Amino acid sequence: MSGSLLSKQVLAAHRIVEATGKVELKRQNSSYRPVSEGTELRSGDLLKPASGVRVKVLCEDGKIRSVTAGVTTGINQICPPPRTRNGSRPIVKARPVDRYMPYIISPRATRLLTYTPTLRWNDATDASRFTVTVRGRGLNWTQEFSREQVCQDGICKVVYPGSQPLQPGVSYKLIVETDTNRASTEDSTGGLGFKLIESDQAREIQVIAERIQQQDVPDQFKGLALAELYAKSDLTAEAIEILEGQENDQKIVPSYRLLGDLYRRIGLVLEAEGPYSKAIELTTATQHWEELAAAKAGLGEVNYARGNRQEGVSMLEEAKAIYEQFGDREQVGELEKRLEQLK
């Protein structure tokens, strides 16, 4: 998928969290169609609940607002316009990795809110010990761990203790080396460093996060809204951590699709495949055709990046057909451009 289309899917502005009956949505350059709880809303959308239907929207600012029943209302009248953010960084181009390489999963190509991030890397299957290093301007923290201490279910992780504090604005890099002479630096992908977010931006995000936590909405919508809030501010590692940490019964279709998008944003196509596939599986029981199309497009890109080019193009064409069926000309145009690039 092109960078702009992935960013658009990641950066949903607002979301329907309650709908007691028929609700129709009209996007720009599209026709009206019925929608349900969980549908993302963007600037320029029109919402039309039937008479007597109660609809609530969780806005990007973390507040819930009601939609007047029986009339058509623009989303910009319901929620404040979205803020400009830095979350639409270019997608990291995936490079080939193998299961014996301790490639970095997190933090990579991200900003951070926390001073003590969870450091995650691929379990290099034949390694017994790992030397973990965080380097940056004036900082060089190193510690050795055994497989038994840090690895489980194919992932190794440890919390950075903060004994050598990270500083805002400084670029850091996580490096992992094994006792089998393999290293994360074998991954030649560029731009995998991470930085602490500036304190004024962190305060603004934390205010909205606390507001979301206080809202009386189902937990699955809270987790999704928090992940989207972080993703919009390029806090990709923490957005992924929230989504990965949700209980299975709290994960809904947009959560899986967003998780796939975020892994693909940082060049981890292997990790993106499972969430995309789960989103596609779950959409068979919902009306979330947009999520189905987005997940198919994402999985198409994953297949293409992994060398399954024919299957990748086929899935992108399936996504395009879904958007065509529902009259979303903007997304159709984006996919047409992408398919032309792949020919």
Score class of each variant (00 low, 15 high):
residue 227 A to W: 01
residue 4 S to H: 04
residue 226 L to D: 11
residue 60 E to L: 04
residue 47 L to D: 09
residue 61 D to F: 05
residue 47 L to F: 03
residue 291 E to A: 09
residue 26 K to R: 13
residue 111 R to I: 04
residue 48 K to N: 15
residue 85 R to Y: 08
residue 78 I to R: 05
residue 126 D to A: 13
residue 264 R to F: 05
residue 117 P to L: 10
residue 255 S to H: 03
residue 289 W to E: 12
residue 112 L to I: 12
residue 278 K to C: 01
residue 22 K to T: 11
residue 223 G to E: 09
residue 253 V to D: 11
residue 1 M to I: 04
residue 218 P to S: 04
residue 105 I to E: 04
residue 156 C to F: 01
residue 229 L to W: 11
residue 143 Q to A: 08
residue 266 I to P: 07
residue 169 G to M: 09
residue 49 P to W: 00
residue 239 A to R: 11
residue 242 I to V: 09
residue 74 G to P: 02
residue 166 L to D: 09
residue 2 S to A: 15
residue 258 L to Y: 08
residue 281 E to S: 00
residue 84 T to I: 08
residue 113 L to N: 05
residue 306 R to C: 03
residue 294 A to K: 03
residue 161 P to M: 07
residue 37 E to I: 07
residue 195 K to E: 14
residue 112 L to N: 09
residue 306 R to L: 15
residue 2 S to D: 15
residue 188 S to G: 08
residue 186 E to N: 13
residue 237 A to Y: 02
residue 261 D to F: 12
residue 45 D to P: 06
residue 125 T to R: 15
residue 61 D to Y: 06
residue 41 L to P: 08
residue 218 P to W: 02
residue 44 G to A: 08
residue 297 A to D: 09
residue 72 T to K: 12
residue 254 P to F: 02
residue 222 K to M: 01
residue 204 E to I: 10
residue 165 P to D: 12
residue 294 A to E: 11
residue 33 R to D: 10
residue 251 K to D: 06
residue 112 L to R: 04
residue 128 S to V: 10
residue 162 G to I: 00
residue 235 L to D: 11
residue 91 I to P: 01
residue 332 V to D: 01
residue 115 Y to R: 15
residue 104 I to T: 07
residue 280 I to W: 00
residue 179 D to Y: 12
residue 274 G to H: 06
residue 136 G to A: 05
residue 200 D to H: 04
residue 188 S to V: 10
residue 218 P to A: 14
residue 341 Q to V: 08
residue 210 E to K: 14
residue 158 V to D: 10
residue 122 N to A: 14
residue 14 H to M: 03
residue 119 L to C: 06
residue 314 S to V: 00
residue 257 R to K: 13
residue 119 L to I: 07
residue 44 G to R: 08
residue 113 L to M: 13
residue 71 V to D: 00
residue 74 G to A: 02
residue 274 G to R: 11
residue 82 P to G: 02
residue 87 G to E: 00
residue 64 I to D: 01
residue 102 P to S: 04
residue 336 E to C: 01
residue 3 G to Q: 12
residue 165 P to Y: 13
residue 135 R to M: 06
residue 320 K to V: 01
residue 130 F to G: 02
residue 199 S to H: 10
residue 340 E to G: 03
residue 231 A to T: 00
residue 186 E to Y: 13
residue 114 T to W: 12
residue 324 E to Y: 07
residue 79 C to Y: 09
residue 244 E to C: 01
residue 48 K to A: 13
residue 25 L to G: 04
residue 188 S to H: 11
residue 71 V to S: 14
residue 234 D to L: 05
residue 150 V to A: 10
residue 18 E to R: 12
residue 166 L to Y: 08
residue 206 Q to G: 01
residue 319 A to N: 03
residue 249 D to Y: 12
residue 165 P to T: 14
residue 204 E to H: 13
residue 187 D to Q: 06
residue 305 A to L: 13
residue 213 Q to Y: 01
residue 333 G to L: 08
residue 74 G to F: 00
residue 150 V to E: 10
residue 223 G to I: 00
residue 263 Y to S: 04
residue 178 T to P: 01
residue 300 G to T: 06
residue 158 V to E: 13
residue 248 N to D: 15
residue 76 N to M: 10
residue 70 G to R: 06
